[in-house]
Design a protein around this nucleic acid. Sequence first.
DNA 1: AAAAAAT
Length: 527
Amino acid sequence: MNPSFQELGLSEERVQQLETLGFTEPTNIQAQAIPHLLSGRDVVGQSQTGTGKTAAFSLPILERLDVNHRAVQALVLAPTRELAIQVHDAVSTFIGNSGLRTAAIYGGQSIDRQIMQLRRGVHIVVGTPGRVIDLLERGSLKLDYVRWFVLDEADEMLSMGFIDDVEKILSQAPTERQTALFSATMPPSIRQLVNNYLNDPVTVTVQQPKAAPNKINQVAYVVPRNWSKARALQPILEMEDPESALIFVRTRRTAAELTSQLQSAGHSVDEYHGDLSQQARERLLGRFRNRQVRWVVATDIAARGLDVDQLSHVINFDLPDSVETYVHRIGRTGRAGKEGTAITLVQPFERRKQQIFERHVRQAWQVLPIPTRAQIEARYIQKLQEQVREALTGERLASFLPIVRELSEEYDAHAIAAAALQLAYDQTRPAWLQTEADATEEELLSPTPKPKLRGGGGSPRREYSGERRGGRSWDNGEGGRGEGGRGEGGRSVKPKLKGGSSSPRRESAASGKKIGSVSAAQESASS
DNA sequence: AAAAAAT
């Protein structure tokens, strides 16, 4: 049990205001970081996504800011525009009616509006490096009175692509300031840089509490030799039937190409990457969050921090570049204590890289062959059965009984039920569920090639069994954990039916507001 | 080598 916000040193007023927002109990990272920040220390904060990092640094800043001095006193930098927007929105919710003013400063948007905002005077700026530098050079943004400097996704901000910009910005801020770095990951190479920017920092590391393990099932689908990944993806999507998914690819071009392929197959999917206009980017995210689009094919622009509620699947169509990126990508799912599935397509030559990732997250992935047509059929039948069981307990059943009574004068009850099932099966079949025309039956039934010359166990379902190494603390959140609930039993091939399938009707769980932890508003806060 | 970030 963490101390209350009040015990952490926040004012009565702020605590009251947090309560009206529904935040009554600090998360671990908040409990650890807030007192240090209030006392003026520099802080390096690491905790998994979805743990309230934004609140951890915003609350102390809000507490100590001088409202009567209308100058930029805090600067927060983030690696993508959308992240800057999210953090800005989160900070805004914590402000209440204190009279504090904030601005989001990022590219792809009218610079004049931002200049106007700055001219009117703001206390907190949240932004991306490019536009911040632009406004510094135009003289519209002044950092002379900055007392807090925060890097969100700090390891990314201190990496090659950003470090020069960050240094340029820092050179204009007073050296007498408080600096905080937050991220879920911190590779050793970046860790070494920290003391260049921070003054005697406190490092605050929060492991995931045992009681609330991160529920991400991690799965590798092995792409058979000579299969394209696009070909392998189709049966995987049919089998998993993701309610909502982020599909990660390495390049913008692949994002565009894969998106058209999936769209022509009839899927509800769109692309998201840096080639799009800012307007298109934000519009897409809106449609994704409202569930108007089920799946999004994205570059690593979406890997970090992006907050989409209830994302059921993350699919790595291309392996990520680094273990850190892997951690951030899969962190888009399994949020707010919900279950999530992270799928990675692994080509035979990538198995070594796969093992490195597995070791890093200290969790073995479930390794599966590409689902066969028969397995996909069986899965749909299974879902149909579940729906029938559910319907049998429903209230509306009674209204259909007279029809059954009438039919049963002529037919056997089993036959009537079977006919009704057949109709349900045919009518709920998704338009895109099709057999692969170019694959032979034999290929479909055993898509994983059996090793010919190489000796050893050729079982298509191999589980990672490497030793688990301890010792890494910074760059990964969690120790090992048991297998997710994805036993192979659920995938056994039983009946083979021709025809379509039933599409699952999943209940949309209401998102409860978990105190101090992830809820829509605050998680933006966090990662 | 690619992605992100200013136009």
